[in-house]
Simulated scan of single mutants.
Amino acid sequence: MGVKAMTTENTGVWVNDQKKIAAIGVHVQRYITSHGLALNCNTNLDFFKEIVACGLIGKETTSLSQELNDPHIDVQKVIPTFLNGFSATFNRTLVPIAQSNPELQEQIMEYIEKGSVTYTDDTRIDRL
Rank of each mutant, 00 (worst) to 15 (best):
residue 82 F to V: 02
residue 6 M to G: 13
residue 94 L to E: 08
residue 37 L to W: 06
residue 51 I to K: 05
residue 95 V to C: 03
residue 16 N to M: 08
residue 65 S to Y: 06
residue 95 V to R: 02
residue 13 V to K: 03
residue 119 Y to P: 01
residue 47 F to C: 12
residue 52 V to K: 05
residue 89 T to D: 14
residue 3 V to M: 02
residue 118 T to Y: 05
residue 10 N to R: 14
residue 1 M to C: 11
residue 4 K to H: 11
residue 118 T to I: 13
residue 23 A to R: 04
residue 43 T to C: 15
residue 45 L to S: 02
residue 67 E to F: 06
residue 112 I to R: 06
residue 6 M to D: 11
residue 31 Y to H: 12
residue 22 A to N: 05
residue 57 I to E: 12
residue 22 A to Q: 06
residue 24 I to A: 06
residue 9 E to W: 05
residue 116 S to H: 15
residue 116 S to E: 15
residue 19 K to R: 09
residue 72 H to Y: 15
residue 101 N to A: 12
residue 89 T to R: 14
residue 33 T to M: 10
residue 102 P to A: 06
residue 35 H to K: 07
residue 95 V to M: 05
residue 35 H to I: 04
residue 26 V to H: 10
residue 53 A to T: 06
residue 79 I to W: 08
residue 1 M to Q: 09
residue 70 D to F: 01
residue 9 E to Q: 14
residue 32 I to C: 12
residue 128 L to K: 12
residue 59 K to R: 12
residue 109 M to Q: 15
residue 53 A to Y: 03
residue 54 C to E: 10
residue 104 L to F: 06
residue 21 I to R: 00
residue 117 V to R: 00
residue 90 F to P: 02
residue 111 Y to N: 09
residue 2 G to N: 08
residue 111 Y to E: 11
residue 125 I to K: 05
residue 124 R to V: 11
residue 46 D to Y: 09
residue 75 V to A: 11
residue 126 D to Y: 10
residue 4 K to I: 11
residue 113 E to R: 12
residue 84 N to H: 14
residue 73 I to N: 01
residue 49 K to F: 05
residue 1 M to R: 08
residue 38 A to Y: 02
residue 26 V to L: 14
residue 65 S to N: 07
residue 49 K to Q: 11
residue 109 M to F: 13
residue 24 I to F: 05
residue 45 L to K: 01
residue 32 I to V: 15
residue 24 I to P: 02
residue 125 I to P: 00
residue 95 V to T: 07
residue 114 K to R: 13
residue 124 R to M: 10
residue 77 K to Q: 07
residue 122 D to K: 15
residue 14 W to V: 02
residue 21 I to A: 02
residue 31 Y to F: 12
residue 53 A to Q: 06
residue 127 R to M: 04
residue 29 Q to L: 11
residue 40 N to A: 02
